[in-house]
C-alpha cells in the first residue's frame, strides 16, 4: 500500500510539498458593532515544514478559527498568516482541509468525492490514477463506487482525508477530523494519519479536543487560552512532545505531560 507513495517516484503528484507557516500577530473577531467579540488575539507562531502541530483548547476558544484563517476560509482582522513565506489571501491550493464532519457530496460516489480535491491543473488521466491510488491508501478501493450514505462514518471520514490529500497540499489542516468517530475507528485513523505523514511528511495543523491524540501524533502542542484581563484567546503554552513517533500510548513521560495539559485545560486530579 505504501509502496505507491515512495518519495522517489517520478509521477508529478508524488512531489510532496511541506510548507512552513507563520502566524504573525494574528487577531480575529466576529459579530458586528457593539456585539463584536474577539476570538483570537495576538497569536504569533512559527510552524516548521513537515511538522505536526496539535492545537488544544477548551470549546469555543478559537481553535477552529485559527485553522480556518490559515485555510483562507476567514480573513483575519489583524495580522496575517504566511504560508511558505507568502501571505494567505483567501482559499488557495497550498492548503487542504478535512473537517470534523466528512462533508462529502451525497450524490457522488466516494471516488468522485475524492476527485473533487484534485488540483484544477491536473490532467484527467493523472487525476484518475491519483484518486485510485488515494482510495487504496485509505483502504477504500472496494467502495470506490459507493455513495457516502452507503458507508460507515469512519469510511466517510477516510474519504474526506483522501480528498484533502488529493490536493497534494503543502499544509494539511485537520479540524477535529476524528472527533466524531468511535474509539476503535479513531485509533485506526490516527495510525493511518501517521503512516501517511511518514511517507509524505507534509505540514499538519491538527485541531483536537483529545489530549491523548495530541500527545500521540504531534511534534508540538499549542494550547490556546484566555489572555490576562482581555477577551479573546491567545497562546497559553507551546510544548514540544518528547520522543519520536510512533509513541507508546502508555509511556510514563507522556502521562506526566498529559496531566499538565489537562490541568491547563481546567481539568484537575488526573
Amino acid at each position: 500500500m505504501t509502496a505507491l507513495l515512495t518519495p522517489g517516484s517520478t509521477h508529478p503528484h508524488h512531489d510532496h510539498r511541506a510548507f512552513g507557516i507563520r502566524f504573525s500577530r494574528l487577531g480575529q473577531s466576529f459579530g458586528t458593532a457593539e456585539k463584536r467579540r474577539a476570538v483570537l488575539r495576538d497569536v504569533s507562531l512559527e510552524v516548521r515544514p513537515g511538522e505536526i502541530l496539535a492545537i488544544l483548547g477548551t470549546s469555543g476558544c478559537g481553535k477552529s478559527t485559527l485553522l480556518r484563517t490559515a485555510a483562507g476560509l476567514d480573513a483575519p482582522d489583524t495580522g496575517e498568516v504566511l504560508i511558505d513565506g507568502h501571505p494567505v489571501r483567501g482559499i488557495d491550493e497550498r492548503c487542504a482541509v478535512a473537517f470534523q464532519e466528512p462533508r462529502l457530496l451525497p450524490w457522488h460516489t466516494l471516488r468522485a468525492n475524492v476527485a473533487m480535491g484534485l488540483p484544477r491543473s491536473s490532467s484527467a488521466s493523472a487525476g484518475k490514477a491519483r484518486v485510485l491510488e488515494l482510495l487504496e491508501l485509505v483502504g477504500l478501493t472496494a467502495f470506490a463506487k459507493h455513495r457516502p450514505r452507503e458507508v460507515s462514518g469512519g469510511m466517510a471520514q477516510r474519504t474526506s482525508l483522501a480528498r484533502a490529500l488529493a490536493r497534494n497540499p503543502g499544509v494539511l489542516l485537520l479540524d477535529e477530523p476524528f472527533g466524531a468517530l468511535d474509539a476503535l475507528t479513531r485509533i485506526r485513523m490516527q495510525d493511518l494519519l501517521l503512516d501517511i505523514h511518514g511517507v509524505r511528511p507534509t505540514t499538519v495543523l491538527l485541531v483536537t479536543h483529545d489530549v491523548d491524540e495530541a500527545l500521540l501524533l504531534a511534534d508540538r502542542i499549542l494550547v490556546l487560552g484566555p489572555g490576562a484581563g482581555q477577551t479573546g484567546s491567545t497562546i497559553a503554552e507551546l510544548l514540544a512532545v518528547p520522543g519520536t513517533r510512533p509513541r507508546d500510548r502508555a509511556s510514563a513521560d507522556l502521562a506526566a505531560l498529559r496531566s499538565t495539559l489537562l490541568s491547563m485545560l481546567g481539568v484537575d486530579g488526573h
Binding site: L73, I91, D92, E93, A96, F99, R120
Partner: peptide
C-alpha cells in the same frame, strides 16, 4: 452551508 464551504475550500 457546510457542503458549500467544503466546495469553496476545494477551490470551487
Amino acid at each position: 452551508r457546510d457542503l458549500v464551504e467544503a466546495g469553496r475550500a476545494f477551490g470551487l
